[in-house]
Design a protein around this nucleic acid. Structure first.
Lengths: 224, 224
DNA sequence: TTAGAATTCAAGTATTCTATTGAATAATGT
DNA sequence: ACATTATTCAATAGAATACTTGAATTCTAA
């Protein structure tokens, strides 16, 4: 009965279409940037549009797409609608996608070096070492992401120093101690910019390449 | 200097385009089926086309696409060209994609139940229990995938009983013992079909839902 | 009822995709 | 060198999708 065989084929096709559907949702740079931002903190459409430099209508469209693929959830909050990642599995998927991309394509390095052009000016510090030095108290750790993201969860012991208003608050940084800065992770320039500012003032600095999510994945402690 | 800001934006866009590029490579059902097949064993274009029921030209096109995204590698082998997954990270990515899809979309269950319609007729056995019973020697484990895949690596202790020529070889199965069958993993019908054949002969049977890759991920032993 | 947030709609453009051809390439065996 | 085989390339056609924008609409809170 060739019919039942055709039928089986169709069913298999159907199954694979679901997987492809998620693949499609991940096939647009803007959507990936949205996913990345949502990895840091839940946000409203307005906020996402602002941070990602997109029109609100466009942002909404892309969010709809992600929502349809069940990668994000939305929740009404008064007059706003706040989006969040549907699940930690989505963050893992995004992380695997980055890992594969980075490993497979040397061009990514180049693109990253272009984007984070001061990357190699700063010493890097590992998560393990940072944790050690935090315990010793011989280092200041600052989170330079916007306050929303800090509020949604940050490395335990980190101070919030959003890049945006860092210039005005430089004096409130504990003096003398070396400063470690972190932001969203390896694809984020905020910490680089903060460190540039600080070295200009003669501070000793280092960057933690990882972000909050990686910190938590590694089994270290967060606060919120 | 607004120019340098525009520039940064462009660079960020470039970066995210690389990720999106991999996403695109994963956005077509046929390509995903190819990836899935390559998870089991390296294969030539011809073989892949046959198993996936696609034209050779088309299969080649899709493989080019995957190759361009560096998800697969090709290697000339005499007159054939054999494709393989570029890296185990690709298998992990594929596995995360399936995990998210399955978790996020209830429809996948339905599609799977339609495709594997005899799924619930057979008892399932966990990897841990199977390993135990293999050690006790009170069960026969058969690998019902095509021989190429068995040759590329199989669960240690499994006998090769490709579904295709199973009917003729039924007698060479050790009698009396219960039979456990496995194939490519949870999205593969081969084992179900084999078990249907065996219960028809009055054998006691069970299915291992996982495939070789999952077995190995779990830290168990393979042979090749 | 009004204002603000978010979504939907319509529209247009652009792009991309798949599947197909037939020719070209590369390795093999004679 | 030649014929053979497997695969890729180039070119195409047509369909289908995708992205973005601005205007209209829905929904909520006050």
């Amino acid at each position: 009965m060739p019919n039942s065989i055709d039928n089986k084929r169709r069913q298999k096709e159907t199954l694979y279409q679901f997987f492809a559907h998620i693949g499609k949702a991940l096939s647009n740079p803007h959507r990936l940037e949205l996913v990345d931002l949502l990895t840091q903190a839940p946000r409203t459409v307005e906020e996402l549009a602002a941070v990602a430099h997109m029109s609100i209508a466009n942002t909404s469209q892309h969010l709809q797409r992600l929502k349809q693929a069940r990668l994000v959830l939305d929740e009404r909050e008064g007059v706003y609608i706040r989006y969040r990642l549907a699940d930690d599995a989505v963050a893992r998927l995004w992380q695997e996608l980055r890992a594969v991309t980075e490993q497979q394509m040397a061009e990514v390095r180049d693109a990253l070096d272009a984007y984070r052009d001061r990357r190699y000016e700063f010493e890097q510090i590992s998560m393990a070492e940072l944790r050690q030095r935090l315990q010793n108290g011989d280092v200041v750790l600052i989170d330079v992401r916007p306050e929303v993201e800090y509020a949604a969860g940050h490395i335990s012991g980190a101070l919030s120093f959003p890049l945006e208003d860092m210039a005005q608050r430089l004096n409130s940084l504990p003096p003398d101690l070396p400063v470690v800065a972190y932001c969203r992770g390896p694809y984020c320039v905020l910490a680089d910019q903060a460190l540039a500012l600080l070295t200009g003032r003669g501070r000793q600095v280092a960057r933690l390449e990882e972000g909050v999510w990686e910190w938590q994945q590694a089994g270290y402690v967060l606060s919120d």
